Simulated scan of single mutants.
Amino acid sequence: MSEVDAARAHGWVAHLREGGTTPWLAWSGGPSAPGAPTSRTLPGAQQLELLRRVNVASAGATTAVLADRVLAAPAAGRGKADLPLVGLDGGTGFGPRAVDPEHVGARELLRVASVLLADDLVSLGADPARSSWARPWRRRFRLVGDPVTATELREHLLALGRPEGGPRPFLVAVGAPLDELLARTWTQRCFETGTKPFADWLRFWRERDQLPARTDLLASVLRWNARRPFVRIVTDIDRLPRQLGVRHLPEVRVPGADQAELARRIASVVGLKVPAGERPGLMRTLQRRMPGSGAAPVVVPAREREWVAESAARMGRNIARAGYPVVGDLADLAPRAETPSPAVGDQQVLDLAIRMVADPSWRTRGVER
Rank of each mutant, 00 (worst) to 15 (best):
Met1Arg: 15
Ala6Gln: 14
Ala7Phe: 01
Val13Gln: 06
His15Met: 04
His15Ile: 10
Leu16Phe: 12
Thr22Val: 15
Ala36Thr: 15
Thr38Asn: 03
Ser39Ala: 15
Ser39Tyr: 01
Leu42Lys: 09
Gln46Val: 12
Thr63Gly: 13
Ala67Phe: 05
Gly79Val: 10
Leu85Phe: 11
Phe94Gly: 03
Asp100Gly: 00
Pro101Trp: 07
Glu108Ala: 15
Arg111Val: 02
Asp119Pro: 00
Asp120Tyr: 05
Gly125Met: 11
Arg130Leu: 14
Leu143Val: 03
Leu143Thr: 06
Gly145Thr: 05
Thr151Trp: 12
Arg154His: 04
Glu155Arg: 14
Glu155Thr: 08
Leu157Gln: 10
Leu158Arg: 15
Gly166Ser: 08
Leu182Tyr: 09
Ala183Asp: 05
Thr187Asn: 00
Gln188Phe: 09
Phe191Thr: 00
Pro197Met: 03
Trp201Asn: 00
Trp205Asn: 11
Arg208Gln: 14
Leu211Ala: 05
Leu218Asn: 05
Arg227Asn: 02
Arg228Val: 13
Ile233Ser: 02
Ile233Ala: 01
Thr235Trp: 10
Ile237Trp: 09
Arg247Gly: 15
Arg247Gln: 12
His248Phe: 13
Gly256Tyr: 01
Gly256Val: 10
Val269Pro: 05
Gly271Ser: 11
Leu272Pro: 03
Val274Pro: 02
Arg279Trp: 10
Gln287Gly: 11
Arg288Thr: 12
Pro297Gly: 01
Ala309Gln: 13
Ala309His: 12
Ala313Phe: 06
Met315Trp: 02
Asn318Arg: 15
Asp329Ala: 14
Ala331Asp: 15
Asp332Arg: 13
Ala334His: 06
Glu338Leu: 14
Gln347Cys: 07
Val349Pro: 03
Ala353Pro: 03
Ile354Asn: 04
Ala358Tyr: 07
Ser361Ile: 10
Arg363Ser: 04
Arg363Cys: 08
Arg365Asp: 09
Gly366Thr: 13
Val367Pro: 06
